[in-house]
Simulated scan of single mutants.
Amino acid sequence: MSRSVLVTGGNRGIGLEVARTFAEAGDKVAVTYRSGEPPTGLFGVRCDVTDPQSVDRAFAEVEAEQGPVEVLVANAGATRDMLMLGMSEEDFAAVIETNLMGAFRVARRAAVRMATARWGRVLLVSSTVGMAGSPGQTNYAASKSALIGLARSMCWELGRRNITVNVVAPGLIETDMIAHLTPERRAELVSGTALRRPGTAAEVAAVVRFLASEEASFVTGAVVPVGGGHGMGH
């Protein structure tokens, strides 16, 4: 059965691959984007997850187009990398606002209709950095690790309504975000993976798709690293 799926930050990178994977499986898929143009072939809604009114408007548009959101992938994120001693409170707070508060806003909005329907799938996209840490990313790591606590608390609140909440934590993935890395830095990051290679967005999307499936109906509160071994054991 075709489901109504929403992927935030679904206009590029991992989010776009996730959205396309759902669409190829026959689901009705909407993506949010903050700037630029929506991806071809997908229903796009402009949305700034740091603005509660923008989130409400986006959900209203999606609901009018394809019905209440049944599968939510909270993927929208931001970075402002800098060593902690030089990081301003504004740079720290801005990343928390997008990565954590943004995920909270869209998850809360989606969960209202899911609870009424007594069915839903919520996937929060974290990062292995949230478990292993990374120099220059205290704000990013803090925001991504906090998603685990958010997801697991949501599990207890929503489980009786047949809603699962899980976390997918990508590691080093071949996207535009790592295209600027120097060969030395890339080699250093690859050496931190047991498989000694970066992953692909398709490999992340496959895990997201599984967690949203009926085969994963008894999986909730899980944190699944997709990092070739980086971030394991947490």
Rank of each mutant, 00 (worst) to 15 (best):
D48M: 04
D56P: 01
Y140F: 08
A194C: 09
F104R: 04
G149N: 12
G136I: 10
D48Y: 08
L124E: 03
N166P: 10
V167C: 15
M1H: 14
L158Y: 15
K144Y: 04
E174A: 14
A111Y: 07
V31W: 00
W119L: 05
G233D: 05
N166A: 12
T79N: 07
M232P: 00
L147R: 05
W156R: 12
S191I: 07
M154Q: 02
V224W: 06
E174F: 03
N162Y: 09
G159N: 06
K144V: 10
V129I: 03
Q66I: 09
I173H: 11
G36A: 07
T116W: 05
R209S: 15
D56L: 03
S126V: 14
G36L: 07
A222N: 10
S143A: 15
V55S: 07
A64V: 01
Y33M: 06
A58D: 03
E17M: 03
R152L: 05
A205S: 14
G231E: 04
G102A: 05
S54E: 09
V223N: 02
I163V: 15
N166Q: 12
N99W: 03
A76M: 07
I96Q: 15
M114V: 13
A222Q: 12
E157W: 14
E37K: 15
N75F: 04
N11G: 12
A60Y: 00
P39T: 00
A74T: 03
D27E: 04
K28I: 00
A74C: 04
G44H: 01
I96K: 07
R152N: 07
C47E: 10
D27C: 04
F218C: 00
A60E: 00
E89W: 08
M114P: 10
